[in-house]
């Protein structure tokens, strides 16, 4: 499954995005519901944690895209066109996932957490 030519590569990136998405929503909801009275506007610790998590996830997805491409190159010529299709599509999907992560996470720098 770790091979860049494995079809599961087509879903890894967006699956990571989905987990990130659920975690930021759940984390924010729990923080606002239970933990503390939020102060500090967009610089509250909740925003900072969410920002850091977003950047880490985005970085992971970009790395995944890079790694898929890098790992596929040595045996590129020996692969079938179906294998190459999987690699190219998976790289695109990982980039899509990184982009969507960045876009959805963007409001963290603009809005206070629990208003």
């Amino acid at each position: 499954m770790s091979s860049p030519y494995h079809p599961m590569q087509l879903v890894f990136g967006l699956a990571i995005w989905a987990v990130w998405f659920v975690m930021i929503y759940a984390g924010l909801s729990i923080a606002c519901e239970h933990l503390v009275e939020m102060e500090g506007g967009t610089l509250s610790w909740v925003n900072l944690v969410l920002m850091a998590f977003t950047m880490l996830t985005c970085g992971l997805l970009l790395f995944l895209a890079h790694r898929t491409w890098r790992d596929a190159r040595p045996s590129w010529r020996d692969q079938s066109s179906a294998g190459r299709f999987i690699v190219r599509t998976a790289v695109m999907l990982n980039l899509v996932a990184a982009l969507v992560t960045l876009a959805v996470g963007l409001p963290v720098v603009m809005l206070p957490p629990c208003l």
Binding site: Y25, A103, P107, V108, L111, L115
Partner: peptide, 20 residues
């Protein structure tokens, strides 16, 4: 009655789905 920031996550995601 969901926090604005949480609404913003879903708002942006709703716009992003229009791209594909």
């Amino acid at each position: 009655g969901i926090p604005q920031l949480a609404q913003a996550f879903f708002s942006v995601a709703s716009m992003m789905v229009a791209v594909p």
